[in-house]
Amino acid sequence: MRWWVGTGLIALYVLRLDFWWWNATERIAGLPLGLAYHLIFCGVVALFFGLVVRHAWPRELDRASEDVSRDEPVETGR
């Protein structure tokens, strides 16, 4: 796993735990802050994973799945 993927995931995990405005009553675009923040959070997560699939795609799994196709049948029956 690339370093920036791990770092990004940890950062996103921390950002999700928004204890800092637990009782905030302000509104953003008509939505309560506690809801608007998490809506934006979903967008940020999507952007992050857009980068991940572009720059940190596990291509080795594609090769692994094709190296030996069905090398041994699944055990069915005794």
Binding site: L12, R16, Y37, L39, A46, P58, A64, S65, D71
Partner: peptide
């Protein structure tokens, strides 16, 4: 929303990326 939805928004792609892709490769092979 913060409890149930944004936790899924973060954790589900993580599971798909790390677990789903590997399960697919093992399953195909």
């Amino acid at each position: 929303f913060s409890l149930m939805a944004s936790s899924s928004a973060l954790m589900v792609p993580i599971i798909f990326y790390f677990v789903g892709t590997r399960v697919w490769a093992l399953g195909k092979r």
